[in-house]
Nucleic acid binder design. Sequence first.
DNA 1: CCCAATAATTGACCGCAGTCATTTTTATAT
DNA 2: ATATAAAAATGACTGCGGTCAATTATTGGG
Lengths: 193, 193
Amino acid sequence: MTRKVQARTLATRDRLLAAGREIVAAGGMAGLRTEEVVLRAGTAKGTFFAHFTDRDQFLAALLAEGLLAEFANMAAPQDRTQLTALLDQVFSAFAADAETVALLARFSGPAGEGLGMDRMICAVIERLAEGVAVLQTRGLVANRADPGVLAEALMALVFHAAASAQCPVHGDARAVRARAEALLQQMTEALLG
Amino acid sequence: MTRKVQARTLATRDRLLAAGREIVAAGGMAGLRTEEVVLRAGTAKGTFFAHFTDRDQFLAALLAEGLLAEFANMAAPQDRTQLTALLDQVFSAFAADAETVALLARFSGPAGEGLGMDRMICAVIERLAEGVAVLQTRGLVANRADPGVLAEALMALVFHAAASAQCPVHGDARAVRARAEALLQQMTEALLG
DNA sequence: CCCAATAATTGACCGCAGTCATTTTTATAT
DNA sequence: ATATAAAAATGACTGCGGTCAATTATTGGG
């Protein structure tokens, strides 16, 4: 017989996430250790893994939460400049660091369900689709394909550019990132016409 | 003063890679343990990490090697059907498993230099660019953008579709993959017109 | 041929993610 | 109330990726 989820379950989960938020804010995702999360949250190690299948899934939940908040103020772009600005904003967030790229690669798809990742991505895609639709009717976008499909393709381009923006150790981060941004710009124009 | 690389260095590296190849062939990338690689190669653990910065970089080298061999027979597509077939071939290889997707995300960019990853990706992009150029002149592709940029964008779409093809544990793998393939098809048509 | 200087290798060791048998808490049936 | 079955939490333990000071092999100069 199935029973309803207990209130303390959600409370524990929240304490873990809150602890994670603090740690990431202080030292970034790469430096987050589950032992410390658990210490701050006041739970045992096993509890962590009863709530999240692994460290990455936990980080993905935190990441989705943060990005969703950051993107909350997004408005559907009304011209090419605004569309570019929106894409740049998303690119900057996605390309922030190697951890972010890895988490997006793993959880941007079906694997991200129930972590908020799917909601975050959908939010971005919806805004993009709205913007594309507007620009199409105004003749500011040559490509007549379905706005939803174009939006998804734009996301794909952003993902790829973000991955390309990660540089090898001791590489020139500035230059690599500039090249990735230029690539995104070119690909976007190739897609939208 | 810098000295030339010793012959045994390359020999050791090859023994490690050969061991890795065997292990991956037998049990897939996910099950590869460095201890076993080292055991088969007849070296110490430290030697492994003197040659490869971490397990993933080693796997990426193996993956690039395998994919490059698989793609060796690629011919530049001459019509839309052949282009689709080529994209499907690459998609199938990239979407093979979650490990592959993760490695591509991490090493498809500048981080993959010197692992063969860059060469593998460039090979695919070049073929795609050739194909796109041919189809453009034959009027089989509406999009007039630079073939090189279009080829890179196509790769981005394939990467994204491959990531979308990974399903959560206990999901219906067949259905998820079918959806990802359909998505790739739609995005490709949206891009090429 | 010998002797520094450098490159390559070694393996004991460590940190941390992830496991699981056990214990504690909570919900429900009687 | 009390029993009992399910859910949640516990923490000692394990396995494996990665490190590093010490050791061995190679090279090139005198």
